[in-house]
Design a protein around this nucleic acid. Structure first.
Ligand SMILES: [Mn+2]
Ligand SMILES: [Mn+2]
Ligand SMILES: [Zn+2]
Ligand SMILES: [Zn+2]
Lengths: 141, 141
DNA sequence: AGCGAATTTGATATTCATTATCAATACGAG
DNA sequence: CTCGTATTGATAATGAATATCAAATTCGCT
């Protein structure tokens, strides 16, 4: 698995150690395709590593973010969620205000226009978060 | 002041009472053009109403949101900020990751494309938040 | 103007997500 | 294998936001 290699590499480059806990968390998290709450992830990891600590999950997610392998999203319920970053991919989100469903989308025109907006305002763009709120097909009646 | 009238009207329509505290908070907040932390707003209001309570500021901001006269933004420092909604206006934000500067922008093309994205995904759009992160002209070297 | 039911206020307690602490443990370069 | 250092995990601390509740205020009504 390539992303795990990336994480190992990141740790090594920063002089950090590879540990059973970090490896377990990373290998599980990185092959998922979900938006995880820390608690959700903690509960999943506990299945394979029952003595895992809550703080370690927080710390490892922070490392995965620094390594560019995870992103953070804050939608509507006040909880912070994390999702794995899939190689060279970017997407934004639609969130249903009723059932909480999260839909992903990519739109190159919007991305391009954002770059232009930043340039016009003499702003060096590093990233962005675009979230559309509303009601999914099942929840709008 | 028209927006204060709107707020009075909202309170009345909902069977809520108009109070010295609500009026003071609304009249100050609504004529500003800033992104306020609850604490910032609390400190400002205290100048004209020293015995104001923290909880009342929270409660009144919630009412202003319900009345459609305030919006909430979460940028980078984890703090929730509130800004007054100016009549019929919408904008999104650029945020400098170094100095925290907040720049506003409007882009009709992006807005339009967002509507299309939602339609294609059979999603009933109610609102959105688009935040561009990077470095302002002073902070990029 | 004054009454009184119902709402609101403000001090403070509580909740809950996240971070800090620190002794015990694990890692890994040599 | 050894030893210095990083990491872990239990738990305390922090801090924003919400809940509580007695006292004060509002406002429709007489
Ligand atoms: Mn996603
Ligand atoms: Mn703004
Ligand atoms: Zn839905
Ligand atoms: Zn700046």
């Amino acid at each position: 698995m390539n992303k795990e290699k990336n994480f190992q590499g990141y740790l090594h480059d920063k002089g950090l150690k590879s540990t059973r806990q970090r490896d377990d968390i990373a290998s599980f998290f990185l092959q998922q395709d979900k938006h995880f709450t820390v608690e959700e992830l903690y509960n999943e990891i506990k299945k394979s590593y029952p003595q895992i600590g809550y703080a370690t999950v927080y710390r490892t997610l922070k490392l995965l973010m620094e390594a560019g392998l995870a992103t953070e999203c804050q939608f509507v319920d006040g909880l912070t969620r994390f999702e794995p970053v899939h190689e060279g991919e970017h997407h934004d989100h639609l969130v249903c205000l009723k059932c909480g469903k999260i839909i992903e989308f990519e739109n190159d025109k919007i991305e391009q226009l954002q770059i232009e907006v930043a340039r016009e305002l003499d702003f060096e763009l590093t990233n962005h978060k675009c979230v559309l709120y509303g009601y999914c097909n099942k929840c709008k009646e």
